[in-house]
Simulated scan of single mutants.
Amino acid sequence: MTTRWLSEKEQRAWRAYIAATHLLEDAIDRQLQQDAGMPHLYYSILANLSEAPEGRLRMTDLAERAKITRSRLTYAVTRLEKDGLIRREDCQWDKRSSFAMLTDEGMAVLERTAPGHVETVRSLLFDQLTPEQVEQLEEIFSGLAQTLERDEERPTPEDVPWRRRSSGPCS
């Protein structure tokens, strides 16, 4: 198989994408550390729980939404649980599985932190784009996400760490 090297234009676009995403993630992390004492990943876990019915998700579902391994999620949830922002509940049907549930204090932290988070995202990303570019951005990344989710050359769901499931209704 012959390597399909990136053209100069593609290489510039790739490097610009990498630089921008790293800088944006760093700025978001700094804002969330300053305002809430937590990294973006922890904030995302709280946000995912706040959007779930009853503020509660199975750990495997939460790992998939956050696109992280279950062991990394367990570490993060342990820290958030220690801070009183999340509570874990055992599954009645499967002792190996558990749920993460957002506490009232976790919701209060989200409500306090969300305005600064949204302002950071808005000022660093969306204020830099025209309405047409926002539409293009959404179209580009939605298309990429769909392709990556269904690409047959990618690992099967069982091979992707955040998609592995144990058996049982609570996994």
Results as ranks from 00 to 15, higher is better:
105 E>I: 13
156 T>M: 05
11 Q>S: 14
145 A>I: 10
54 E>A: 12
55 G>E: 04
85 L>I: 05
138 E>L: 13
126 F>Q: 01
122 R>A: 14
66 A>L: 04
39 P>K: 05
108 A>V: 02
42 Y>F: 08
98 S>W: 12
9 K>G: 07
168 G>H: 14
13 A>Y: 06
74 T>R: 14
150 R>H: 11
86 I>Y: 01
123 S>G: 04
165 R>H: 01
38 M>G: 01
116 G>S: 08
80 L>G: 02
15 R>D: 12
163 R>M: 10
34 Q>W: 15
170 C>A: 09
10 E>R: 12
65 R>D: 06
63 A>M: 10
97 S>K: 02
145 A>W: 15
135 E>K: 02
122 R>N: 04
48 N>T: 05
12 R>H: 11
92 Q>L: 10
42 Y>I: 04
157 P>W: 04
10 E>G: 08
138 E>M: 13
169 P>M: 13
106 G>M: 01
142 S>W: 14
154 R>K: 10
18 I>W: 15
42 Y>Q: 09
148 L>S: 10
140 I>W: 08
35 D>A: 15
115 P>T: 02
129 L>E: 12
48 N>K: 07
117 H>K: 07
151 D>T: 05
72 R>Y: 11
59 M>R: 15
5 W>P: 09
116 G>Y: 02
48 N>I: 00
8 E>F: 11
168 G>N: 12
123 S>N: 15
136 Q>A: 08
136 Q>G: 03
82 K>I: 00
23 L>R: 14
68 I>M: 07
41 L>V: 03
68 I>Y: 03
136 Q>T: 04
161 P>L: 02
60 T>H: 11
157 P>I: 12
120 T>D: 02
101 M>H: 11
97 S>G: 11
161 P>K: 01
20 A>T: 12
110 L>S: 04
13 A>W: 06
82 K>M: 11
106 G>K: 02
118 V>M: 15
86 I>M: 03
52 A>T: 05
92 Q>S: 13
28 I>R: 14
147 T>V: 05
56 R>W: 14
68 I>G: 00
171 S>T: 00
142 S>G: 07
149 E>W: 05
99 F>V: 04
167 S>D: 07
169 P>E: 14
126 F>H: 01
125 L>I: 05
67 K>L: 00
90 D>N: 09
84 G>D: 04
21 T>I: 11
12 R>S: 13
52 A>R: 08
80 L>A: 02
6 L>H: 02
2 T>P: 14
41 L>D: 06
117 H>Y: 10
128 Q>I: 00
143 G>W: 10
118 V>Q: 11
66 A>R: 03
74 T>I: 03
82 K>C: 03
164 R>E: 03
101 M>Y: 15
7 S>W: 03
27 A>N: 11
71 S>L: 05
129 L>R: 08
156 T>G: 08
103 T>E: 03
44 S>V: 03
51 E>L: 15
23 L>C: 12
61 D>N: 13
30 R>V: 00
160 V>R: 13
118 V>D: 09
49 L>C: 01
38 M>V: 09
147 T>K: 04
66 A>T: 00
155 P>I: 03
42 Y>S: 03
133 Q>G: 01
24 L>G: 15
21 T>C: 03
147 T>N: 10
61 D>Q: 04
82 K>Q: 14
86 I>D: 10
142 S>E: 06
31 Q>C: 09
